[in-house]
């Protein structure tokens, strides 16, 4: 008897292939999202909003309707869509450059308005697509192409903690940071994503999941080293955790 061990989610295109570098976090998260959309049977009602970054070609991966946004404006596009089609499932998929740097104002205001959308932010602590420059979330000391001697706080300040700040907004129903370092943590990440989906489906407010992910290419590390770096260094600055969950709060 054959057992099915791998099934391609319906929400991924049959002939769509991820074009990310080896060890990149994007593919793992996109796959989890596709699985969840299948599990919730949302495919026919979903509109995904892509952002500018390595994940820009969502329409080449997802078997879903996709609207493209300019750099940093995905949550605005999502707001426009959700407000006129409240029955649709609307999520943005953004990087740290997109959602926490050029578009952080939009992220915060979307949270404060309590838009019923889900935002997934892949934090690889750099501008991956443009070749690894420092972003707002880059760690102090982190070497990037614009901080070749390591980020210096006295010159470029300190990293921005997106999930914690988003959690402070009254319209936020859920805000968490997860890290896709091993199977156990990937499962936890999927739980967080699932929660963020449910929050939207129940119309409870803005749901935000920040995913710490590796960018081995720009970190100049082997995939395994990149995971170690995330566990030992990145997570000490950007700790994983659930910073807000209104479904758990008691009065």
């Amino acid at each position: 008897m054959e057992t099915l061990v791998y099934k391609r989610p319906e929400s991924l295109l049959k002939d769509g292939h991820f074009t990310f570098c080896p060890g990149c976090g994007h593919g793992v998260v996109l796959r989890m999202i596709a699985e969840l959309i299948d599990e919730f049977n949302l495919q026919k009602d979903t509109i995904a909003i892509s952002s500018v970054g390595c994940s820009i070609f969502l329409e080449k991966f997802f078997n879903l309707d996709v609207a493209g946004a300019s750099h940093g404006r995905s949550t605005c596009v999502a707001t426009g869509i959700k407000r006129c089609k409240p029955d649709k499932f609307v999520f943005t998929y953004q990087g740290d450059g997109d959602a926490a740097t050029i578009g952080f104002n939009e992220t915060i205001h979307t949270a404060c308005r309590g838009e019923h959308i889900t935002t997934v932010m892949i934090n690889n602590t750099n501008f991956g697509m443009t070749g690894g420059q420092a972003s707002a979330t880059t760690l102090v000391g982190q070497v990037t192409t614009t901080t070749p001697m390591g980020r210096k706080a006295e010159l470029t300040g300190y990293p921005l903690h997106a999930a914690e700040i988003v959690a402070k907004c009254d319209g936020t129903a859920y805000s968490a940071r997860v890290a896709i370092t091993d199977t156990k943590n990937i499962r936890k990440a999927k739980e967080a994503l699932k929660k963020a989906f449910e929050i939207q489906m129940k119309g409870q407010g803005f749901a935000f999941v920040e995913v710490l992910a590796a960018c081995p290419t720009n970190w100049h590390m082997k995939p395994a080293e990149a995971i170690e770096y995330m566990e030992n260094v990145t997570e000490t600055v950007h700790p994983v955790g659930v910073f807000k969950d209104i479904t758990k709060e008691t009065i």
Binding site: Q43, T46, F62, D65, K85
Partner: peptide
């Protein structure tokens, strides 16, 4: 865009 319901997925992008 309205969700890929009984039709192929659509996209509206500028890249």
């Amino acid at each position: 865009l309205s969700g890929a319901n009984n039709r192929p997925a659509r996209n509206i992008v500028s890249l």
